[in-house]
């Protein structure tokens, strides 16, 4: 039985595509078969974040229009077994597809026996959003601890519920623990109180995400990254495991002596 999860946010630039890429990759690392579907027609990016931009031959719109078969359009990931990308069309716009067609497309992916379909939703609340959520069983709402992002997330949650998607869980992205500790940034508790949905995970604002995105390698593969660990935890929660939220520590100022001592003991900086 396959599950369709849409990754959405309302506001752009909060980390939807990165989240979709990491969750898709993480699920595949756990042995699941996954199709990551880029629903952002006209502004496709999931391929770039995955480092698969040079392997695209066909796209989602061509599958829907019958120009090619589903299997021809699925791009196999270069790292993970069982992970595929269905790219969005770059030269078309959101009106090229209807919610009904998206439903049909997801049904045909389900028929191939995949465990998960992860849909990367475009920003906004228009046609593209409606297409992206049409086939979804569940939603992941990504937000950052900023007023505008949380406000949009609240509207999105309302719209998901209005469309019968009641299983929506929150990912709070780009948390800076040092700023939260100084009360110069909203905390997870603050955001939870306002949005009133369950939390799926928190992701620290980390250089490792920028670096891995630069390389086209999802950070979930990076064993040394806290953000990578946070995504691995999220994946386990999606699979039904009960994992506590990652403990984020503010960067501690250390003296040169302490660092030297730590280095001698083989600790990582």
């Amino acid at each position: 039985m396959s599950e369709v999860i849409v990754v959405t946010s309302g506001k752009g630039g909060v980390g939807k595509t990165t989240t979709a890429a990491n969750i898709g990759t993480g699920l595949a690392m756990e042995g699941k078969s996954v199709v990551m579907l880029d629903a952002d027609i006209g502004l496709r990016n999931l391929d770039v974040v995955m480092g698969l931009e040079n392997r695209i031959i066909y796209d989602l719109v061509q599958v829907i229009e019958g120009t090619c078969r589903l299997k021809q359009a699925l791009v196999k990931d270069k790292r993970c077994e069982g992970l595929f990308l269905l790219p969005a069309a770059q030269t078309r716009d959101k009106t090229a597809v209807s919610p009904e067609q998206m439903k049909k497309l997801c049904e045909s992916i389900k028929d191939e026996g995949f465990d998960y379909i992860i849909i990367d939703c475009p920003a906004g609340i228009e046609q593209g959003f409606k297409n992206a959520i049409a086939a979804a069983d569940k939603a992941i709402v990504v937000t950052t601890p900023e007023i505008s992002a949380v406000r949009d997330a609240d509207r999105i949650i309302g719209m998901l519920q209005a469309n019968g998607i009641n299983d929506a869980r929150l990912i709070l992205n780009r948390i800076r623990v040092d700023m939260v500790a100084r009360n110069e940034m909203m905390s997870l508790e603050d955001v939870e109180e306002i949005l009133a949905i369950d939390t799926l995970g928190i992701i620290p604002d980390e250089e490792s995400i920028v670096i891995s995105t630069n390389k086209g390698e999802p950070v979930v593969c990076d064993e040394d990254s806290t953000a990578g660990q946070a995504y691995r935890n999220i994946v386990k929660r999606i699979l039904g495991e009960d994992i506590p939220l990652i403990k984020l520590m503010p960067p501690v100022r250390t003296t040169l002596f302490q660092r030297l001592f730590g280095w001698l003991r083989g600790e990582k900086e």
């Binding site: 007023i147 309302g158 939260v180 100084r182 009360n183 110069e184 909203m186 603050d190 306002i194």
Partner: peptide, 20 residues
């Protein structure tokens, strides 16, 4: 006050007026 608290208060009001 701290900007985190200011943000939360502003957000509460925004979300509330959006909802209704």
């Amino acid at each position: 006050g701290f900007s985190g608290t200011v943000a939360k208060d502003r957000l509460k009001y925004l979300v509330l007026s959006d909802r209704v």
